[in-house]
Simulated scan of single mutants.
Amino acid sequence: MPKLAIPLTDEQIAGLAPRDRPYKISDGHGLYLLVEPTGKKRWRMDFRLRGRKNTLAFGIYPDLSLADARQQCLNTNQLIRDGIDPVEWKRQQRRQAQAAAPATRKFRLSMNDQGGMVIEISSHRMALTVQQVAALRAFLVATGDEIRGE
């Protein structure tokens, strides 16, 4: 029979001091706070699915509040009851978010006095002649893409 954990309070969490070794303070339902020797306090949850023990990390306190960590724990327990691996589910959510996010790169454009252009992306640099800039403009106009900065 599992032990009953007394729910944590924000005052208790704020008063937790680091020790020589990491230690756990349980909140219940598998949720606990891992206090590291550096003083960082990480929300974690241990669970069993299909006979295997696993750990899921939620975030760092106080960036992730006690109430938010409890809500994530309840959501995770629901996934486990439905037979869904929460670690794999979290990975899949991250992949979907990355696929939905537009691929952007930071770059810098500069024009010289003759009408040429220099494009710089991190360690790469490309210089365009006046004729190449004109061809690029014509291409952008022909494809219907906007030209900004004019």
Rank of each mutant, 00 (worst) to 15 (best):
residue 110 S to D: 13
residue 82 D to C: 05
residue 20 D to Q: 12
residue 22 P to F: 01
residue 30 G to Y: 03
residue 40 K to A: 15
residue 61 Y to Q: 02
residue 9 T to K: 05
residue 57 A to F: 05
residue 107 F to M: 15
residue 2 P to Q: 07
residue 103 A to L: 12
residue 120 E to I: 13
residue 42 R to A: 07
residue 44 R to G: 04
residue 34 L to T: 00
residue 71 Q to T: 13
residue 83 G to Y: 10
residue 3 K to V: 05
residue 88 E to W: 00
residue 4 L to F: 07
residue 132 Q to D: 05
residue 101 A to T: 10
residue 134 A to G: 07
residue 73 C to Y: 01
residue 56 L to T: 02
residue 104 T to F: 10
residue 149 G to Q: 07
residue 132 Q to S: 10
residue 70 R to W: 08
residue 7 P to V: 06
residue 4 L to K: 12
residue 24 K to A: 07
residue 147 I to F: 08
residue 116 G to W: 04
residue 114 Q to S: 14
residue 135 A to D: 14
residue 71 Q to K: 15
residue 135 A to R: 15
residue 57 A to S: 15
residue 118 V to S: 13
residue 51 G to M: 04
residue 43 W to Q: 03
residue 79 L to A: 08
residue 121 I to D: 09
residue 21 R to F: 00
residue 100 A to C: 04
residue 4 L to N: 07
residue 76 T to R: 03
residue 68 D to R: 11
residue 107 F to D: 05
residue 124 H to M: 15
residue 143 T to W: 03
residue 52 R to L: 06
residue 109 L to R: 05
residue 150 E to F: 11
residue 32 Y to E: 02
residue 133 V to G: 02
residue 144 G to L: 07
residue 53 K to I: 01
residue 89 W to R: 15
residue 35 V to E: 02
residue 72 Q to M: 14
residue 12 Q to K: 15
residue 146 E to M: 11
residue 76 T to N: 04
residue 75 N to Q: 13
residue 140 L to V: 07
residue 124 H to L: 14
residue 58 F to R: 04
residue 82 D to M: 09
residue 83 G to C: 08
residue 38 T to K: 08
residue 118 V to D: 10
residue 139 F to S: 10
residue 53 K to R: 14
residue 95 R to H: 09
residue 101 A to M: 12
residue 40 K to L: 13
residue 28 G to D: 02
residue 50 R to W: 04
residue 130 V to L: 09
residue 85 D to E: 07
residue 97 A to C: 09
residue 109 L to Q: 07
residue 46 D to Q: 12
residue 147 I to D: 09
residue 130 V to W: 05
residue 104 T to L: 12
residue 60 I to K: 00
residue 128 L to E: 03
residue 77 N to R: 15
residue 46 D to M: 10
residue 66 L to W: 06
residue 82 D to L: 11
residue 33 L to T: 01
residue 98 Q to F: 03
residue 9 T to A: 01
residue 55 T to C: 06
residue 50 R to L: 08
residue 150 E to N: 12
residue 74 L to E: 14
residue 89 W to K: 13
residue 85 D to G: 06
residue 8 L to Y: 02
residue 17 A to K: 15
residue 84 I to Y: 03
residue 86 P to N: 08
residue 142 A to Y: 03
residue 59 G to N: 02
residue 86 P to H: 08
residue 17 A to M: 07
residue 107 F to S: 13
residue 95 R to D: 09
residue 23 Y to Q: 03
residue 80 I to A: 03
residue 141 V to K: 15
residue 63 D to Q: 11
residue 102 P to G: 06
residue 7 P to Q: 06
residue 101 A to S: 13
residue 29 H to Q: 10
residue 67 A to G: 05
residue 25 I to F: 00
residue 150 E to W: 09
residue 29 H to D: 14
residue 46 D to V: 05
residue 150 E to Q: 12
residue 117 M to R: 04
residue 138 A to L: 10
residue 64 L to N: 02
residue 17 A to E: 09
residue 79 L to D: 08
residue 20 D to K: 12
residue 70 R to M: 08
residue 48 R to W: 09
residue 133 V to Y: 02
residue 130 V to H: 04
residue 86 P to A: 10
residue 139 F to V: 00
residue 93 Q to R: 14
residue 45 M to E: 01
residue 131 Q to G: 11
residue 66 L to K: 04
residue 32 Y to R: 02
residue 149 G to R: 08
residue 102 P to R: 11
